[in-house]
Amino acid sequence: MEALLATIIGVLAAVGIYLMLRLRTFPVILGLTFLSYAVNLFLFASGRLALNAAPIIGTAERYTDPLPQALVLTAIVISFGMTAVIMIMAVGGYLQAGHDRVDLDRDDEEPT
């Protein structure tokens, strides 16, 4: 099981990074979403894996670590907020510039 979860984390991160290296906003945002999945799973994994040990007092003999879960829960919600913000930025960028490339055009003004 550990190997499976580690593989999932690695694959999700790789897919996320590959998509983030694309040149258009939409795949970059999807890539970020994939990377968030990977990171959330990674943080969750820091509590180690356990079956039938939900941290609900009185329902099991031993409990898994609740702290990473609480942190990941808030992380999931925050990543939604972040995705929403960059999504509207991407839409705004496309509507204002007429294209959705993430890189500066060569003839665009050099940042000074």
Binding site: A6, G10, L21
Partner: peptide
Amino acid sequence: DAGIAALAGLGLGSLAYAMLT
């Protein structure tokens, strides 16, 4: 890009595996 992504995924996955074990 695929190379960079694969290496990064390999790194994060191995780190996760090392941590989980």
